[in-house]
Design a protein around this nucleic acid. Structure first.
Lengths: 345, 345
DNA sequence: ACCGGTTGTCGAATCGATTCGTCGAATCGA
DNA sequence: TCGATTCGACGAATCGATTCGACAACCGGT
């Protein structure tokens, strides 16, 4: 293994000089700079991360806490991981992966052993124990998702409340008056996931705002029950002419259930999604309010980097930054107006 | 930050004694062991990873190289990342995430700066430049997927050739004589992905072995073209009574296209998948040859750990271990025999 | 010719844990 | 009681990079 001494020897200078060439923190004559650089290139020298970290107490690593796998694996989390990793590199950081299985003890271990400079917490819950742990440890952190106490740590999130409202508003604008809102699963709602709770709230708020009749239903992970539930909600009196789906992971099932009821999308039932479409949707595209994965990833990474910087400066009174991302509507295929079924009802 | 000195002081012993309590590499009296342990607990002491690494040249970190995002993001890769991360923890390792965007230079940087003890390479291609880089760097590595030169580094993979053959054989056993095999996309095949090439080979080998007429088709990422291609392949002379799909990511599209042709699954067309089903499949379950994600993750992690151990021992002549996992057939809904269409043809 | 001020480089201390050699105290046999 | 042996803990060197104080060499001004 080549060290800074090897480089120094080859270039005929002191190790400290090599260090200054690398960091640029002191003036070095152009001559020696070139000699040293050449020695570095010839030897293929890279500073040892451990030695650097030991001295400077900076790792240039972000810990990324992936969500709990309770409700199974969510495809979008993998995308977040990749996007965040690339964003981190752009800020000069590497990413250390932590699964939720390790939980708070895992984060504590990483923080105290100094393996990362900050943590990014995914799938934050309204009352998330990891937040208290980060504060107690004095460890910089940024949240992907908004918790109940949103002043404690920097966070970014889609404005789920606005997203739900927006979806309903678009349907109302197309003439729909009877709208069903299929929220996330009961499990997610009971777990107090922020996106679940706020989506629900946005859906409820949409009714008075648009004047439409918005009936809100919770979804379920049990696909057989979900199909039955959809059958029921489509056959009440004054059946809905439009459906908003926040439980996007189940969209294929849901569309299949709708088809099984003999309804065509969008002629008989307009469907709008809130959140990321699953990779594959039977060739169907839907109008939707999208989850801005790249923006959120970039934002949470930037917030983490800022949290590190401000801690280093000891500027504690600065309130942590936030970024509530406004929802954007992707028209996709134009929303159909209420179909013949509406006339029947 | 609490250091080993703080612990030593509190316990009234020398720092080296604390170190020996932690590592157990020398005999320590029960009395002092307890005193030291108590001090550690009270202070919540964790050894600094950087100091430890500097001294021992071991990081207890595995670098995980995620695949290139060329063909978009594949959901199964996220699952692998999580499974591998958990498996790594079980071996005492953390996982450093690297996206394909960083490529070989990224791996070189990690190896030379000593940020990881070994690398796990995902989505290995038949002729993968990363392999040469690892060998040149003398950096331990394990492959998820089998390359052309499979003696250079340890690897694990599903036996894709056997998997494809198995799927055809099961259909043949159910009485099917005219079978279509929809392989992976042209793009993957041209990129010389091992699973694509070997699946294709297995499908071709299945014809003579089973005596069935197996027609092999390549898939495409363009869903409109894919639908047309499926239409064509279903309407040749002697149309197939069964379909094997290796391009599982497109399954929802494919099933939709089949339905659009007026065919019911499985009554008119038996469908068997090779690989992991997408999270959601419109409520449909299919018989399939599964991709054993947990086994593969555990195996590749074990191989990486072994590669580290053998390098440390300097036992270079030991050939790297392999693990070719035999395919398993998951019956799911029983395969339907050839339907009325077969009689027509 | 001498002196204050730059400029560019060097040497040494430092970060925190590990590990080897050493050394005092306890134990045992003769 | 004394020397040999074992047991348990200590001190110091070490890993590789960073950083601060020091210090030559050079420059211009009086």
């Amino acid at each position: 293994m080549t060290t800074i001494k090897d480089v120094a020897q080859r270039a005929g200078v002191a190790p400290s000089t090599v260090s200054y060439v690398l960091s640029g923190s002191r003036k070095i004559s152009e001559d020696t700079r070139r000699t040293v650089q050449q020695a570095i290139d010839e030897l293929g020298y890279h500073p040892r991360a451990s030695a650097r970290t030991l001295r400077s107490t900076r790792t240039n690593v972000l810990a990324l806490a992936l969500p709990r796998v309770a409700g199974g694996y969510r495809a979008v989390d993998g995308r977040f991981a990749i996007e965040i990793s690339d964003a981190a590199r752009a800020h000069g950081y590497d990413v250390l992966l932590m699964t939720a299985q390790e939980g708070v003890p895992g984060l504590r271990r990483i923080a105290r052993s100094g393996q990362a400079d900050a943590a990014i917490l995914m799938a934050v819950e309204m009352d998330d124990p990891r937040i208290a742990a980060m504060l107690e440890l004095g460890f910089p952190a940024a949240l992907l998702g908004r918790s109940a106490d949103d002043a404690a740590l920097p966070w970014t999130d889609l404005d789920w409340e606005a997203a739900a409202t927006l979806a309903v508003r678009e349907l109302a604008a197309a003439g729909h008056r009877d709208i069903a809102y299929l929220a996330t699963t009961e499990r997610e709602i009971q777990a107090q996931r922020g996106y679940a709770i706020r989506g629900l709230a946005g859906a409820r708020r949409a009714a008075p705002e648009t004047g439409a009749d918005v009936r809100v239903h919770q979804s379920t992970g049990d696909m057989a029950r979900l199909a039955r539930r959809i059958g029921t909600l489509l056959h009440g009196e004054r059946p809905p002419t439009a459906l908003v789906v926040q439980h996007v992971a189940a969209l294929p099932h849901i569309l299949a259930a709708v088809a099984a009821e003999g309804l065509r999308v969008p002629e008989d039932l307009a469907v709008v999604a809130v959140g990321n479409l699953p990779d594959d949707l039977g060739g169907q595209d839907l109008p939707r309010v999208e989850l801005p994965v790249p923006e959120m990833s970039a934002a949470v990474t930037r917030l983490a980097a800022e949290a590190i910087a401000t801690r280093t400066q000891g500027t504690s009174p600065t309130p942590p930054g936030h970024l509530l991302i406004p929802p954007a509507f992707v028209p996709g295929p134009r929303i159909a107006p209420p179909g013949p079924r509406a006339a029947n009802a």
